[in-house]
């Protein structure tokens, strides 16, 4: 860890002022930032502790206008919220299946969606080549161990996977992100928060320098009660997804009116599978339809050796999630 300036802000404007637009990082739960500072991967010159904002930015509000989640709400609080569990099970499940109990008690939603990749070549500075860490230096993962790397949304510059779970739930439900920044407040679709790596994998989000996530919105969606988050992983708890699927279904008898699908563990960013949704619209959800949707979701997958199995696992995960959602009483 390198020396840094520590500030503590008790109001949003103060936080924005403290962060300025330089090499600053906001500190909330710290479960990503502190790890990466100790590994010398992140080297902020200024750390702005925003935990005092929790009283204002930690709320969970569910009502006719939909769901609003404060950026500083803890993962565990949202996962355990009775309204969220009833009306938006995909959100509650995505949070409950993430990390460990200790981490969920510390980590906040805002930090969670900004969690950095677990690519080991990114997290270990002894690898000289990492375009995410050192733009233009190359990508060590391309010919390295890639079991947990992405197969969707990759580029020749970066194949690191997005590690989180909650983001898939937000994405599937057409969530929004509320921001405050030097240029004032704004709200964007969650789908516009994360970038594809392309040839600038060091730019992971569309946040402006110094911009702060203050909350998330989810529009009212009665049939979101029929939603699931299925996480396939190597052990029963406390492991990243090898593949995951967030699914919400609007069913008319056996027929799909509308399906929402987002995929995790397999893509460079939270991944909305609109092609799969389109395949299902108006169809009877049976094995054949589910398989066609899964095929569509992974049509553009590109693998790198160790992760050759991921498109197949991803398809199976999606099919299983679709049927799991279908079985739910809405």
């Amino acid at each position: 860890m390198r020396p840094f300036t520590y500030d503590r802000a008790d109001a949003v404007p103060a936080a924005l002022r403290a962060a300025g637009s330089g090499a600053s990082s906001y500190l909330a739960g710290g479960t990503t930032l502190l790890d990466l500072m100790k590994l010398d991967v992140m080297r902020p010159e200024r750390v702005v502790d925003i935990t005092p904002l929790a009283s204002r930015l930690g709320g969970i509000e569910a009502g006719p206008q939909g769901l609003r989640l404060g950026a500083l709400a803890h993962m565990s609080a949202v996962a355990d919220d009775a309204m969220v569990r009833r009306d938006y099970p995909v959100i509650a499940e995505s949070l409950a299946l993430a990390a460990s109990g200790q981490l969920r008690n510390m980590a906040t939603l805002g930090g969670n969606v900004l969690q950095r990749t677990r690519c080991n070549y990114f997290r270990d500075v002894s690898y000289a080549a990492c375009n995410k860490r050192r733009p233009g230096s190359g990508c060590s993962a391309l010919d390295g161990v890639t079991r947990l790397h992405a197969v969707l949304g990759t580029s020749e510059h970066c194949i690191a996977s997005y590690p989180g779970d909650f983001a898939q739930a937000l994405l599937a439900l057409d969530g929004t992100v509320e921001l405050e920044g030097p240029q004032g407040p704004r709200r964007i679709p969650f789908a516009e928060l994360h970038r594809l790596p392309g040839d600038t994998p060091h730019l992971e989000t569309t946040l402006a320098p110094g911009e702060l996530i203050t909350g998330f919105g989810v529009p009212p969606l009665p049939w979101a009660r029929r939603s699931v988050y299925l996480k396939v992983r190597d052990r029963e708890s406390y492991a990243f997804a090898v593949a995951s699927a967030a699914v919400a279904l609007d069913l008319d008898g056996g027929r799909v009116r509308e399906a929402r699908i987002a995929l995790g563990g397999v893509a460079t960013r939270p991944w909305r599978a609109r092609e799969a949704e389109a395949v299902l619209a108006g169809q009877v959800l049976d094995e054949a339809a589910a398989q066609r949707a899964a095929e569509a979701a992974f049509r553009d997958a590109r693998t790198h050796g160790d992760n050759d199995f991921k498109p197949e696992l991803g398809r199976r995960t999606l099919v299983r999630a679709l049927f799991q959602a279908q079985r739910l009483g809405a």
């Binding site: 677990r118 390295g144 947990l148 052990r235 029963e236 708890s237 406390y238």
Partner: peptide, 25 residues
């Protein structure tokens, strides 16, 4: 322990990705 074959380096050298059973396992 996953080994980067070309570089002969251990890759998952932490106890989050070097998996051992948790209670639920």
């Amino acid at each position: 322990t996953e080994i980067d074959h070309g570089r002969a380096r251990y890759v998952n050298d932490n106890i989050l990705e070097y998996l051992i059973p948790v209670n639920a396992d």
